[in-house]
Amino acid sequence: MSSEATKFFAIRTTARQEVNVALMIELVAESRRKDVGEEEIYSVIVPPGIKGYIILEAPGLHAVYNVIRGLKHIKGRASGALKWEDVERFVVPKPVIEIIKEGDIVEIVAGPFRGLQAKIVTIDKEKNEVVLNILEAAYPLQITVPADYIRPAKRG
C-alpha cells in the first residue's frame, strides 16, 4: 500500500490529556498489530498548541475505531477526514522568517531582550536575521537578532 492511501482523522480528547491518549493509542495499535499481523495506524500526531485534539493517520476509519474503542479520555471523532495540507501545517511548520513582514509587531522570546515587544524594521532572509525597533524602550533602540529569537505577536 502506498502512502497516497493514508487518511487523517481528528479525534477529540479531554483537554491536556492529548499526549496520554496518543501513548495509549500507541500501545493499543502495537498490540493489535501483533494480533492482526498488519499495521492499522501509521502515525499519531499531537499538534502543538491545540488543546483537545489529536490526529490519527490510518488507511481508513475502521482502523481508527478499532484502536480508540473503549479508551479513556476520548470524547469522539471530528467528522470527515483532514486534508494533508491541514496536517502539514502542524507537522512541518513554516519558518518564522517566511511568515513575518516589515512593520509587524513581534515578541522577543530569547536573548537579553526576552519578553519585550518590537516592530520589524528590516528582514534579511539570507542571514536569517531581523532588525527590530524595541517598542518598550524609552529611546529609539534598534537591535539585530536571529529570526529564531522572535515570534509573531498575537493580533487583536
Binding site: 493509542i25 500507541e26 495506524i41 502515525s43 499519531v44 500526531i45 502543538p48
Partner: peptide, 9 residues
C-alpha cells in the same frame, strides 16, 4: 518541547 508525533509505520 511541544507537539508529538508517534510513528508506527
Amino acid at each position: 518541547w511541544s507537539g508529538m508525533v508517534i510513528i508506527l509505520s
